[in-house]
Nucleic acid binder design. Sequence first.
DNA 1: TCGTCCGGGTCATACGTATTACGTCGTGGC
DNA 2: GCCACGACGTAATACGTATGACCCGGACGA
Lengths: 327, 327
Amino acid sequence: MTRNGRPTSRDVAQEAGVSQSTVSLVLGGKWTGRVSPGTARAVHEAATRLGYRPNEAARTLRLGRSGTVLLVVPTLSSPFFGAVYTGAARVAAAHGFRVVVYPWPETEGPSGGPFEAIDGILASSMTAGVLGGFGGAPVVMLDSDPADAAPTVDFDVAEGMTRIAEHVLGLGHRHVGHVAAAVDEWTFRSRGQALITAVTDAPGGRFSRAHAAIDVAAARDAALRLLRNRDRPTVLVCDDDLLAAGAYKAARALGLEVPADVSVTGFDDVLLATALEPELTTVRLPAAALGAEGMAALLELLDGGAPRSRSLPGDLVVRDSTAPPPR
Amino acid sequence: MTRNGRPTSRDVAQEAGVSQSTVSLVLGGKWTGRVSPGTARAVHEAATRLGYRPNEAARTLRLGRSGTVLLVVPTLSSPFFGAVYTGAARVAAAHGFRVVVYPWPETEGPSGGPFEAIDGILASSMTAGVLGGFGGAPVVMLDSDPADAAPTVDFDVAEGMTRIAEHVLGLGHRHVGHVAAAVDEWTFRSRGQALITAVTDAPGGRFSRAHAAIDVAAARDAALRLLRNRDRPTVLVCDDDLLAAGAYKAARALGLEVPADVSVTGFDDVLLATALEPELTTVRLPAAALGAEGMAALLELLDGGAPRSRSLPGDLVVRDSTAPPPR
DNA sequence: TCGTCCGGGTCATACGTATTACGTCGTGGC
DNA sequence: GCCACGACGTAATACGTATGACCCGGACGA
């Protein structure tokens, strides 16, 4: 027992009356034919008696890999990343890796300092600029600009937004208001582009747009700007479920009923979507699948492969916030 | 340059024409008076030229600490933990530590396997049983049962719930319905206890209760059970903001207006509280302060101190979901 | 002239593990 | 009786870093 208080493999060896190598062999599991069953049992007993835990730093140094991958996210304050984590962790665990999460607000710049011993990185919803902040570990980007150099797994948000557009156009709406996220990220640019294309391609389709920071109050103001026009849209397509919550507030403030007077749609299908009243029509993005696919790609990368980037489709979920336009 | 591809401090030494020790001294920053400024500059240049990054595993092994603490949370799907992280990370950074997050659903049991090199653990909203799953690293518990052996930083939820009770009693309510979380956690037991005490202590105070899993649909059903009684409560006090969202739905389903016909309160003040319509009266728990205080306690523990457990008060936030009872 | 000290570095070592190459002892074949 | 071999372990080493113990040449005081 070293002065540190934590027993080492050598302490176990002494306790069991064998050498450190034997302990390592036994506890490593690869001892069939090298160590007698009796000795092995003695080692195990000594280890549990002392409460031995291998020192991960030493193990990592020796093996050259830590079995840990980092999931970098811009914020924890979104259930979205919880689902991404779940998917990633499931795949990782099946391959003997564990996942820890590092929240890294992009505003912090590409600093971050030297990272702990990490085998690879999954970076979600970030721009490529952050890549420099890491110590050269293999990276797979999630939900990020597919033009980046790193392998990327994305949502096909353009297709999802097109589904939204088809849905509301199919209900008979012609004037579509877009409550757009005032954030210059690939995913929002892509959503807006798909929407405007679908709407202006439709016969008689018209389009107006207001920008808002991603927060309820800002979205409410933006939606008010759209709804106060004398020629007002009959549906508000929002870039995000949270923005849709703001649109609800704007409608209520003007005495308009959702969906009778104005329809509203969201995007992402977060927890919020079913908490709202009426429940929100939105696009469900398969966040867990994103994490799983991303982790699979990363593991392939760690194995020396060259994974292809890919896009996952979203599902249109029709709930109670959309209806045909008022007469 | 080793075959691994990543340059070591020895490679830098060779490039700069000095010894490895000198590189370590210079890059460690503690070289004033030991190394000439010229040599130091040469080392820095060689390091950047080679793109040298110190091997964290080796550094950790040598120093006996990694500069990393783990924040263990039951789930990422709650903005609450985002705030806890922010507070904890700020304090940690000021002391040269970084924080990574490990989501650990309690359902997974106290397994978890050997952890990476970690100096300490901050475990939020968990029962003490999980402690065994970690390798004996110093632990501070957050938002957990203060009866646990480990140092604990908590919210004074009893006091917060008492404030809620005072508020609604002060508005004139006498019959209080409690939408209780059907979860056997310290914090919810404590909330329920405080509420029932305050209500039954008030002259004329009456109390009914329904339990619900923490999800909107279950909360709606529980609230319906309360509101369908012929002698129905005039206010629904919910253990949680999410439960309050369900209570809103129940009220609407019965054609009752919030707050005119029935008042509703939440607890936690998560994002949801302002997204709901009307905005929710709730108790704001200072999650960031919880993280910060917890990290301060952990750092004290790592320094050999014995931090005291403490409780942080919450703030009653009165919004639009509470009003005097109907005539 | 000699001892001392100091600036400027280097050598050697230890952290705890996994693994490769080597020993040792008993047994069986010839 | 001797060699080979299998069964069972052990000694030694390397991973990359930080750091305490040394080392050396010159300046300076006595």
